[in-house]
Amino acid sequence: MQGRSQKRRFRSGNLTKAVLALICLVVGTAGTGSAVNPVGRAPHIVPNEFVFEDQSNRARHVSDEPHVVRGDKRDRVSAGARKPQLAQVALSLRLGLGPLAVNAQRMAPFGAIDAEQSTKRMLSHNAEMDRLAGVPAKLVDLVTNDGADILATAYAPTDPFHDPSSPFDALLGTKRNGRFVPPVVEGDHVWMKDPLPPKVFSSDEQKCLSTAIYFEARGESLKGQAAVAQVILNRVRNPAYPNEVCKVVYQNASWLNRCQFSFACDGVPERIVNRRAYRTAREVAMAVTGGKIFLRDVGSSTHYNATYVSPEWADGMEEMTQIGSHIFYRTYNGGWS
């Protein structure tokens, strides 16, 4: 009996020691904050006062792979570089455009998201965007020129694709550095090859051109208004006339009913009452001056008359076309016939 009692006490003592050891193990693990957690489970939060003690006692050679593979951790690459930047670098490598990645931040000063959007816009860029850049919707159908005179700032694109130092300009050859010269056909004169004087783009010159369009052709179609503007600008090119729009429009204005454009010498005050029509005239004036609109059927015409009159000078000129209520003519020798 005594031997059995000693064996029971021995077994009981061992069991007690095992339980105590297990408790100590559990408590010790909770106190140190185990670094290993099951995938997807939130990490154990350790109070701040224990963080320093834990870090000082932790072995430095312990692998951090359990942290990397956890589902709630970000991948290592995204922590070192932003994804939009990486996307631009990859894109530039595929296209062979190293400068794209370098210039990404310059083209998007407000952050990587803007840079990514700018890159997308540049990749979706096409020739039609250049063709219609800055053109009012009402004049889209009349546009005949892909580019525009460099002095016509109203049609200068300002998107990142046309940044002066953009690599796309050098690669695709889209930089605009020329003046508009009208297409010359058989029978045209040598002065048609000259670009317009820079002064015609000034506000005063554009005001004179817009006023002439308004009073001479505001009742005509948009094409008819553009044709009148083209005649005036052809005279500016022609050495037989003044080289300024205002001087062309108001030439001989002091001769009652004997000047070049009837509204300038008919004795009726120039009062612009239809603001919408005048705004349209201004848009037409700039579009024709900038070369966005050039009517080939009007060509180098320097004269026109209304269909309800028969001027004597018309018999000595070549009739080009009729648009609305106006007939357009060009001279045979470049000046007065």
Rank of each mutant, 00 (worst) to 15 (best):
R271P: 05
S56P: 06
A133H: 15
A148W: 01
R131Y: 00
I45T: 12
D188E: 04
A154M: 09
P38F: 13
N48L: 10
A226C: 05
V181I: 11
G31A: 15
G111H: 08
C246K: 02
V181K: 12
L132W: 09
N252R: 13
P109V: 04
Q230G: 04
A90H: 10
Q6P: 03
I272N: 10
C259M: 01
R276G: 00
T211H: 05
L196I: 11
H326G: 03
F50H: 10
A21G: 03
K199N: 07
T331Q: 03
Q225S: 06
A277Y: 03
G224Q: 06
Q105D: 14
E53N: 10
V298D: 03
H44R: 10
V190G: 11
M1Y: 05
V140S: 11
W313N: 08
I323K: 07
L97Y: 00
P157K: 06
P242S: 10
I232V: 14
W336N: 07
N37S: 06
T16D: 12
S34C: 08
G324H: 01
E216T: 11
T280M: 09
H162S: 05
A59K: 05
L93H: 09
K73G: 03
E128N: 13
E116V: 05
K138T: 10
P198Y: 05
C208H: 14
M122V: 04
P269T: 08
R8Y: 04
L123C: 10
D266E: 06
D159V: 01
E216R: 06
S254G: 09
L139Q: 11
D114V: 08
G3E: 12
D204I: 02
F328I: 09
H189M: 13
M192A: 13
V248T: 07
N177M: 07
I327V: 15
P239A: 03
F161V: 05
K247A: 14
N126L: 04
R275K: 12
V62K: 12
L123D: 04
A264P: 00
T144F: 04
E128I: 07
Y278H: 09
T302D: 01
I327L: 11
D159C: 02
C259K: 02
V309C: 02
S210T: 10
P197C: 07
P183Q: 09
P66S: 13
F50T: 01
I232E: 00
R271S: 11
D141S: 15
T302E: 05
T16E: 13
N238S: 15
E220S: 15
V143L: 03
A79D: 10
N274I: 01
E205Q: 15
S63N: 08
R74S: 07
M320Y: 04
G224T: 06
M107C: 08
N257L: 08
